[in-house]
Design a binder for these strands. Sequence first.
DNA 1: TTAATATATTCCCATATAGGAATATGTCAA
DNA 2: TTGACATATTCCTATATGGGAATATATTAA
Lengths: 111, 111
Amino acid sequence: MARAATTSDAFNAVAEPRRREILEYLAQGERPVGELVARLGMEQPSVSKHLKVLHKVGLVRVRRHGRQMLYQANPDGIRPLYEWTQTFERLWAHQLLRVKERAEHKAREHN
Amino acid sequence: MARAATTSDAFNAVAEPRRREILEYLAQGERPVGELVARLGMEQPSVSKHLKVLHKVGLVRVRRHGRQMLYQANPDGIRPLYEWTQTFERLWAHQLLRVKERAEHKAREHN
DNA sequence: TTAATATATTCCCATATAGGAATATGTCAA
DNA sequence: TTGACATATTCCTATATGGGAATATATTAA
């Protein structure tokens, strides 16, 4: 088997750095393709292809406005990623705790 | 150009569902490869290969214990993902607000 | 209509997969 | 040493990719 398609889910879609840039930019609100091209310094066909992937996995919504296509981020699509990373929140807490304990230990040492 | 290597960063490494499963399992603590094989129902070479990718991007740590290799999740490696998703937190807040407003509106209607 | 603008699609290709099968390496026990 | 156990590596192959270049489609304006 080969690698799963970029369009198979949000995790795969977002693995591409350019697509993350696009999503970050679209977090500001609805924007036409041309603005992404201008601001992110990518080729127009490249932007369109990335948007197609993002759309397929539900990470962006589109709407036509005259000749322009207005894209916006669909934050709901990001939630699965957010929630998955939270699996490890507990472990971060432990680390912070350890740091805190070490700091307190040091503080006692110096008294 | 082709797709970026799975070993290029945490985003790419974690795009593979099997690797996420492995990380989730290792969130419990340090575990030998054999236990992953048994519990996750994957082939041993497959698990070893996935672990290699995870190790290369710093998502797991290893330690030898006799014949066994004990792997543990390195939660720090996940933080970049967590932090990136937080870019969109603000947008979720808006949505919750909208839900709340709708609920309150309905409540007023029924008075 | 025709031209101009905005975006999407197609074609080409070097590249890195993930899994299966087989085998290699490393470590302990007898 | 030899064998058994635990894990890693290699070889194979179908497959999807991302970028570049060229072109197609859709919409508005003249």
